[in-house]
Design a binder for these strands. Structure first.
Length: 269
DNA sequence: ATGCTAACCTGCGCGC
DNA sequence: TGCGCGCAGGTTAGCA
């Protein structure tokens, strides 16, 4: 589920239900996620959540006794449910909150994570990350500078969180199409001018997706609704064999770093 | 250092 | 209807 817009939407959807609530009790039914859920996580019990934060695709919940760091992996989701809600097979973690609601983590593939970080200390995991794509630090000039000497495919390059965070497979495909750049081009061989276009497309697409995510916020509470995909029109992702929306030529698919990459051989070079 | 591969795990859709 | 295969929105460890 999570590309950056969905994590941001999750944060905004949860905020009204979690902010200033006390964590009464933490239940871990399945501790074997991407990393084992650390015992220290229980130090958050009886603590009040005073701030929610998103960094890259990580969701941070701050208390005076430490910070919970969530990652949703490929298939994770966080929702607020009633205490009597039926517990499903992949509902791995519950936080009983002081407002009589339950924060529930669901993750069939178990690629997600819940980590603990002590107060007033930096999170090692986050220290190596590149800038947020919607920040002023992320520009075409930045990408161009970082790409010097790189022979790897530009698609792999922009999906590398050490360069810029939050560009997942869907939006990598979409932004390269919009920028007219072939996904297999060597990152180091692309001009500053083209990187400026690419950076702008990444910003536009992500901002638009976040904006549209707002319309699905109610799905985060109760029911069995999932955030799901945004209404945003996908031009190439998942459209292998269909006509290019610009020139009608059949869209091609290749695998780059084991990820599906769909593009138009006429519009992207 | 750079860049690629395998690996973590379950569910789903497809072809036979 | 059932079975086997390939694929899925992420990220890191480990190796050449």
């Amino acid at each position: 589920m999570p590309e950056l817009p969905e994590v941001e939407t999750t944060k905004r959807g949860l905020e009204p239900w979690l902010l200033n609530q006390r964590i009464e009790k933490i239940t871990v039914r399945q501790a074997k996620l991407r990393w084992p859920v650390p015992e220290e996580i229980f130090q958050l019990e009886s603590q009040r959540i005073f701030k929610l934060e998103r960094r890259a695709k990580y969701l941070l919940m701050h208390t005076e006794a430490g910070t919970a760091i969530w990652h949703l992996g490929m298939s994770g989701s966080l929702r607020v449910v009633e205490p009597n809600a039926v517990i499903g097979k992949h509902d791995h973690i519950d936080w009983q909150l002081s407002n009589e609601k339950v924060l529930r983590y669901h993750d069939p593939r178990k690629f997600g994570a819940l980590l603990f970080n002590p107060p007033h200390s930096d999170v090692a995991l986050l220290a190596q990350l590149g800038p947020e794509p919607l920040s002023d630090a992320f520009t075409g000039a930045y990408l161009f500078a970082r790409a010097r000497g790189k022979t790897q495919a530009v698609k792999t390059f922009i999906m590398d969180a050490h360069q810029v965070v939050g560009v997942g497979n869907i939006y990598a495909n979409e932004s390269l199409f919009k920028a007219g750049i072939h996904p297999e081009l060597a990152a180091g061989k692309i001009s500053l001018k083209r990187y400026e276009i690419l950076a702008q497309e990444i910003k536009t697409i992500l901002a638009q997706a976040i904006e549209q995510g707002g319309t699905t916020l109610r799905d985060f509470v109760g029911g069995d609704g999932k955030p799901g995909y945004f209404a945003q029109e996908l031009r190439v992702y998942g459209r292998k064999g269909l006509p290019c929306p610009k020139c009608q030529k059949t869209l091609q698919e290749v695998r780059i770093a084991q990820r599906s990459s769909v593009f138009c051989t006429k519009c992207q070079h």
